[in-house]
Simulated assay, not measured.
Amino acid sequence: MATRQPEFNFPKGGLFFIILGVAAIILFTKATVTIGPGEGGVIFESLGDGIDTEKTYGEGFHFMMPWNKMIVRKVRQQSISDEMNVLSVNGLEVKVNGTIWYEPEFENLGKLIKTKGQDYERELLDPAINAAARSVVGRYTPEQLYSSKRDVIEQEILEEVQGVLKDQYLSVTRVLVEDVKLPSTIRIAIETKLKQEQESLEYEFRISKAKKEAERQKIDAEGKAIANKILSASLTDKILQEKGIDATLELSKSPNSKVIVIGSGKDGLPIILGNQ
């Protein structure tokens, strides 16, 4: 005998509430957005004028009209690195590896995206960096690029980039030139020249040190000569007699001395005989 399955009666109006619930979930998902740390967002009004340039949304949970879209971008300081082929002042091609730190202006994020698009690094930042690097590097020789002018070049590139990006809603805070690659023959020649210059400086330092020591000894000798001259001029016969008497008294006190005074010597000083 077959077992009769229990009947399930779907509640009246249940399908309507299911559809309504699904629609509510979709609506809630479309109408909310969470902006993460270090990010900012601007609303794209699908039924309006596009990007809302008046307000930038910060970190946290936000509501919006479900037919709009929130465009979220990083607004904290970021960096990009690149290698550029540029020409030095004498026309030699060099490769410059550099890093640049930048950040969009938070309050003007909507204006930045509206005027330059979401990919504003490629549209705005890259051309500015390349133009500034070519302009600045083109003022220097390969030797200056390779050795002594690195800090100056970084500052000049930074100033030029900042000038190009003025009023463009994008701030550049620092430029770092990490490496300058020259053709091997040029690099070896520069390194050899720098080594020779260093050796020359060391040689000049040793010569200078020797001259200073000779000058010191000359001054010392002249000082002693002057002192002796002054001393000789101050030693009168009377002072010599007094010093001779003092010396005689000191010798007479010595246990190792045998002193016999007989008459007097020249200048009235006693004659002292010892067992030398």
Rank of each mutant, 00 (worst) to 15 (best):
N97P: 03
K253F: 08
I35F: 13
A24Y: 04
V164P: 02
V72Y: 08
G48L: 11
L165Q: 03
I230P: 00
L165K: 14
L231E: 14
Q77A: 03
S81T: 11
S264L: 07
V259M: 14
K211Y: 09
E160I: 07
A227V: 04
E39F: 10
K166I: 03
S184P: 02
Q241G: 07
A128W: 13
Q198A: 09
L125K: 10
Q276R: 08
F106E: 10
L176Q: 13
G41L: 02
I51E: 00
G21E: 05
G50I: 00
I230E: 10
T173G: 06
F8Y: 14
S79N: 07
P37C: 05
D179P: 04
S254T: 04
L27Q: 10
D267F: 08
A128L: 13
K166E: 15
K55R: 14
R139A: 06
V261P: 08
G91S: 09
F8E: 11
N90C: 07
V22Q: 10
T56P: 00
E143K: 13
E103Q: 14
G40D: 09
A247S: 11
K69H: 11
K166W: 04
L109C: 10
F61P: 02
V261M: 05
L182W: 00
L235M: 14
F44T: 06
S135V: 15
Y203P: 00
W67E: 04
I188L: 11
K114N: 04
T248Y: 11
R150A: 14
L194N: 15
N68S: 12
E160W: 00
V136C: 03
A214M: 04
I186H: 00
E242D: 08
A24L: 09
L165R: 05
F63A: 09
V86N: 13
A210S: 10
G163I: 10
L235F: 11
K258I: 10
K30L: 01
G265N: 13
A189H: 01
S184R: 04
V75T: 10
N85G: 07
L176E: 07
A24P: 03
A189F: 05
V172R: 06
T53H: 02
K243N: 06
G60V: 03
S79M: 12
V172A: 13
L176T: 15
V164F: 14
K253E: 08
K166T: 13
E213A: 10
L125F: 13
G117H: 05
K114Y: 14
D119L: 12
I35W: 13
T29F: 02
E215S: 10
L87V: 09
L194C: 02
D220M: 08
E178Y: 01
A133M: 06
V33M: 08
T173F: 05
V137Y: 06
G265T: 07
I25A: 07
V89K: 11
I71R: 06
P255W: 01
G50K: 01
G138L: 03
P66I: 06
K195H: 12
S171Q: 05
N97L: 05
L158I: 00
A24N: 10
Y102G: 12
L109R: 14
D119V: 07
E107F: 07
E202L: 15
D119G: 04
L158C: 00
V164C: 12
E107R: 15
P11V: 01
E7N: 15
V161L: 11
E213C: 09
P11N: 02
T99F: 14
S232R: 11
G263E: 15
E250C: 00
L269W: 05
